[in-house]
Write a protein that binds this DNA or RNA. Structure first.
Ligand SMILES: [Mn+2]
Ligand SMILES: [Mn+2]
Ligand SMILES: [Zn+2]
Ligand SMILES: [Zn+2]
Lengths: 142, 142
DNA sequence: TCCTAAATAAGAACTATTCTTATATAAGAA
DNA sequence: TTCTTATATAAGAATAGTTCTTATTTAGGA
């Protein structure tokens, strides 16, 4: 059950287990996609009508700190949150706000090898984000 | 002279030549780095104290439309503007807000070849942004 | 059960950016 | 050159996603 999965992720993280955190964890795991705080709020307030907006941001920030989720920048000024933990990059559609996951180990290896070979002076790489911007034909909301 | 260069870029673009646009063009070419609207405002209001904030955003947007400059996303919610037209990627320092240009034709070719080989279904690539996040030792402001 | 550091609710505050509207002006036409 | 008008600008209000403040609640250890 998805609620149990969320709860165990919380336990492993060492965060206090609260109804609000369980609800948001459940929302993230159910929605899967790159949710906005606003969308998560709509989802969780069905069952938790008093869950405050600030609490949602606090909790999402706490999850990020623990590495449970990651922030994803968008073209607009809206933060999105990614619950996918496997290494991947993103296809950004420039006609709508849809962001599709792009998994490819070959690409990951290619970049990793490239930069270990290059050895940038005075810069230690922690993360490489590849944004593939273009047009994704079968939109989500068609 | 840098003002003449700015003026000729404006002429080529087909935009009306106004003192405000010349001033911002000059600021962009002088500052070079990935300026914020705020920083550009500080720069231009030395000589043009009445230049309105909204005008700066309007003009920067117009320059983007014409392809004179490009928007660069940052970790914070502040837009930055890039006057560098040669193809390049960015090194993001996660300790400060410094963004360094990274030019490498080999990398560009590598990615171009990779994606033309892959041929993503239902997605036409317009642009690939590689964000290299890490720690850049000799900070600008040390 | 009790205690307390941590979490939450509610809503005000913040801030980069956008919008509105009256005024000014660049640049083509006459 | 002067006239014309579509376009650009100044000033400041409005917006919106996010953060902050503070009183209250609560999870989880003692
Ligand atoms: Mn993702
Ligand atoms: Mn750049
Ligand atoms: Zn789309
Ligand atoms: Zn730095």
């Amino acid at each position: 059950m998805i609620k149990d999965k969320g709860r165990s992720i919380l336990t492993e993280s060492g965060l206090k287990i609260t109804p609000q955190r369980i609800a948001i964890m459940e929302a993230l795991l159910t929605i899967k996609d790159h949710s906005t705080a606003e969308f998560i709020k709509e989802y969780v307030t069905k069952n938790n009508p008093n869950l405050a907006t600030g609490t949602i941001y606090n909790i999402l920030e706490a999850f990020c700190q623990k590495g449970i989720i990651k922030k994803v920048k968008t073209e607009k000024d809206i933060m999105r949150y990614d619950v996918e933990t496997k290494s991947h990059n993103h296809l950004y559609c420039d006609e709508c706000d849809y962001i599709k996951n792009y998994f490819d180990e070959e690409l990951d290896r290619l970049l990793k090898d490239y930069f270990s070979k290059k050895n940038l002076s005075n810069f230690s790489i922690k993360e490489i984000n590849l944004q593939i911007v273009g047009n994704y034909s079968p939109h989500k909301n068609n």
